[in-house]
Write a protein that binds this DNA or RNA. Structure first.
Lengths: 262, 262
DNA sequence: CGGTATTTTGAGTATCGTCAAGGCCAGTGG
DNA sequence: CCACTGGCCTTGACGATACTCAAAATACCG
């Protein structure tokens, strides 16, 4: 929140917190209080949302768009350690600063809760507290899924893992994942350098791996940032991640494909 | 907790919870209640502590030894996604099963809290709840540190990152890290296959990378599992992780080296 | 339609994975 | 006490993969 947001204020009605995952189960008074302190902020692609190691004055939830979580190195390079999408939560609570900076990968809108007020609310509401706890647990699981993807020795495998992750995570987001005919369309909301960095490789290798997958018929490259996955099954095998295959959300995707194919 | 522990019971006096990080700040009555429900369990190296996707009946803290967190694949292979050491916490709370299994990498002792009782306590004690929250946050940070290490394109760099991580994390554990003269001695509590798997590579490459670092004078290999790091600075450069260098704990190490060298 | 940024392709080299053989150490049994 | 054995770690050789640098092609934007 160091940069000046393009648009500052947020009215209570503008952001219906109840629509956020999990928030619909919070008791009415807590929701009201949250509504009272929330501020909506907009960022353009490329803007810095939070600087690393800066005292975090807000706890935030992503409303639209995609953010990049990264570690900045003194020499100017930066390591991407994750992406944040709709419904994701970030910003420290209680103590400590974030060790990572956050940038808008696309134009984005976030809901910010002033930290002090949020923490006070957290202490008073076990439900909110529990919501946060559960969110952190799933976040942790996802970080470990990343580790598995990154531990794949071949770029092809890591790329396949990334694509599957995008399929499962971006399903509910915008129109990034759509099922058309026998294929799944995915729009990749990251530039090639970002993808390369995320996978611990170079743009050239990403390009080659992607085209290799295309040559093998696993997917079509409609545009550099728009793919049509033709063989989800084969992709999970490339990723060496049978577990990603039976993710509930991926199954739903397959079902949607079948239905769409009829 | 699927396997039969070698030793079952645990007396209240046997485990002083106050010694665990953070626990000393809990209010007296909560500590008492925790003492009342805690069970101490021992495992031999190689034993399974928790099976993946099994309903987790305990929330646990590692007391001694080292555990391996891994994802089991249907074909029998397994991906290591992290290690747990003294003071680390594992086991789901509130909902969901762990997606990972946990095995003892060395002989280990854990403190287990029956889940129902622990969760009840969690709801009553904001302090305990907050302790858990903070723990999860730091766990998340560590998972992201892992991602950065794994994103290093070269095995040398990943290995360097692992060694630094071990230096910072195992400092307080057993006698795994000691400062002798101008060097830091590290005992690696993992077999070569485990290290290779963790770094997404093969044992041969680990061996070569390690000996390459030794040839360049960054470290000495006393025994395959016992290293003497001679140039911490150069190692951080290999890891491409300047941030690991100014970790408070690493600085303490350097200071200890200076003092020891005098 | 031109100019810029991004992506792709190409060629050469370094690194890594793979397979196979060799060395080291601890435990076993003569 | 010493040979034998099996597990781990290391070394060597070769092919596959990926990184590097350079150039071309494509997409993007005015």
């Amino acid at each position: 929140m160091q940069e000046t947001p393009r648009e500052a204020a947020g009215s209570k009605s503008s952001a219906n917190l109840r629509l956020l995952p999990g928030f619909d189960e919070l008791p009415e008074p807590i929701l009201k209080e949250l509504q009272a302190i929330v501020v909506r902020r907009s960022f353009e692609a490329g803007q810095t949302v939070v600087e690393a190691d800066a005292p975090s004055r807000f706890t935030c939830i992503v409303r639209t768009g995609i953010l990049r979580m990264q570690k900045d190195l003194p020499d100017g390079r930066q390591h991407i350690v994750g992406i944040l999408v709709e419904g994701d939560l970030f910003g420290r609570v209680f103590n400590g600063n974030m060790h990572f900076s956050i940038e808008a990968a696309t134009d984005a809108e976030i809901l910010a809760f002033p930290r002090a007020a949020f923490e006070a609310l957290l202490l008073r509401s076990p439900e909110l507290d529990r919501l946060l706890l559960l969110h952190l647990l799933s976040e942790l699981d996802r970080a470990r899924d990343w580790m598995i993807i990154l531990a794949n020795p071949k770029v092809r495998g890591r790329l396949a893992g990334l694509l599957l992750l995008l399929c499962t995570r971006l399903q509910t987001v915008d129109h990034l994942v759509t099922v058309s005919g026998r294929a799944v369309r995915v729009r990749i909301p990251l530039s090639r350098p970002d993808v390369a960095h995320l996978l611990g490789t170079r743009v050239e290798s990403v390009s080659r791996a992607l085209h290799a997958l295309a040559d093998d018929g696993l997917l079509d490259i409609v545009r550099p940032d728009l793919l049509e996955i033709r063989n989800l099954q084969a992709l999970t095998e490339e990723a060496g991640e049978p577990d990603l295959a039976d993710t509930a959300s991926l199954l739903r995707l397959v079902k949607a494909m079948r239905k769409s194919a009829d």
